[in-house]
Design a protein around this nucleic acid. Structure first.
Length: 374
DNA sequence: GGAGCCCTGCGA
DNA sequence: TCGCAGGGCTCC
């Protein structure tokens, strides 16, 4: 799933490919994708049409495109577990990531860092034939009004036209949720298989600390629905000492606190396990028993693992498409903890243990990461 | 502060 | 057929 480094890769792609473009029209293909938009699916297209995308900003895993230059509203996007933003252009078939990256990627055997990008590049994108099919389907659907598209969300015609070749279990057309057409002819697609992601238009509100809202813009504002989201470990304006103090004031377990987006954002289950392993902390360690130094080391570890992933993940980004699934090396990246249950700890060789915790799995080294250690 | 739910596809 | 995976919101 897209984690912070993948979202940052997407933000960077958006910044380079859609800024300055005006939205011509919008089709909502699945109402669930806009469930958090205050005005609902029928309102969203009108809120976007005619607006110019003026900045691409990210905080944690939230991403937003500022609308027009007055910085009063933004299109806010959360990719959830399987969301993607794709930029497609009519004049080329090389606008999609390779299909294999759209499939739920199996966890590959761990590779040493820095991980090489997966073999596939945009050059191996969909064939011209399938791209043509997609284009014609898009045109046909684009003719629908927003309302029509909603009713026809499972329209047999559209569905059959969009069905990809057998053997490709997932493809952008099938999971297209929202399509924006831009004034340069490009399409910006929000594609989301599991529909945990969402997209909405919201007012920008001032940041509490007067500092920039996130990566990508100096403007000290962020969308209201993301106002409760803390700064992330890559944010230069994150007050690290204050974070450590707040963490230690909590009476909870350290992994739970790491996943709390109102303390520090952008850390999901995978990075939490990785950071805890690096910091040698047991996931269930009591936060109020951490020293300030140990808390800061945990934050350092979180930042380091994200920077490494970002460095590995950005490399295979191709100028012609914006890929969120993180094609980009995320899944080839080395993981020291997550998904390594039963395998030897890379520090001490003890078999890694997996426990269910908070409804999520936690993988840790029972020897290096003691609940009671200093 | 914590449990449950949303949703889909894969693998056992 | 069922369990699992995941982030974040809602409700307790």
């Amino acid at each position: 799933m897209p984690e912070l480094p993948e979202v940052e890769t997407v933000r960077d792609g958006l910044a380079r490919h859609v800024l300055g473009r005006r939205v011509e029209d919008v089709v909502v293909h699945h109402p669930r994708a806009v469930r958090r938009h205050a005005g609902g699916a029928l309102d969203l297209p009108g809120r976007l049409a005619g607006r110019t995308l003026s900045a691409a900003v990210r905080r944690g895993k939230y991403l937003w495109l500022v609308l027009d230059d007055d910085a009063e509203e933004a299109l806010l996007v959360h990719l959830g577990m399987s969301g993607q933003l794709l930029v497609r252009r009519e004049d080329t078939a090389l606008t999609l990531p390779p299909p294999e990256h759209l499939v739920h990627p199996p966890t590959p055997p761990p590779l040493p860092l820095p991980a090489a990008a997966p073999g596939a590049s945009a050059d191996s994108a969909l064939t011209a034939d399938s791209a043509l099919t997609a284009e014609s389907a898009l045109t046909a659907e684009g003719a629908l009004t927003a309302e029509g598209a909603l009713t026809a969300e499972s329209a047999p015609t559209a569905e059959s036209a969009l069905t990809a070749a057998p053997g490709v279990p997932s493809d952008p057309e099938r999971h297209l949720r929202v399509a924006l057409r831009l004034d340069d002819g490009a399409r910006l697609w929000f594609v989301d298989q599991r529909t945990f992601g969402h997209l909405l238009v919201a007012d920008l509100v001032p940041t509490a600390d007067g500092r920039p809202g996130g990566q990508g813009s100096p403007v000290p504002a962020l969308p209201e629905p993301a106002a409760h989201i803390a700064r992330d470990p890559l944010d230069p304006d994150l007050d690290r000492a204050a974070w450590a103090r707040r963490l230690r004031q909590r009476r909870t377990e350290v992994k739970r606190a790491l996943l709390d987006q109102s303390l520090v954002s952008g850390i999901g289950n995978i990075y939490a396990d990785e950071a805890l392993w690096r910091a040698r902390l047991h996931p269930r360690r009591a936060t109020d028993r951490l020293t300030q130094r140990a808390a800061l080391e945990l934050l350092d570890a979180s930042e380091a693992v994200m920077r490494e992933a970002l460095a590995a993940g950005g490399t295979s980004f191709d100028a012609l498409y914006v890929d969120v699934e993180g094609a980009s090396g995320y899944f080839a990246r080395s993981l020291d903890a997550y998904g390594r249950a039963g395998e030897p700890c890379r520090r001490c060789g003890t078999p890694m243990r997996r426990e269910s915790f908070m409804g999520r799995s936690s993988t840790f080294c029972p020897r290096c990461q003691r609940p009671s250690r200093g």
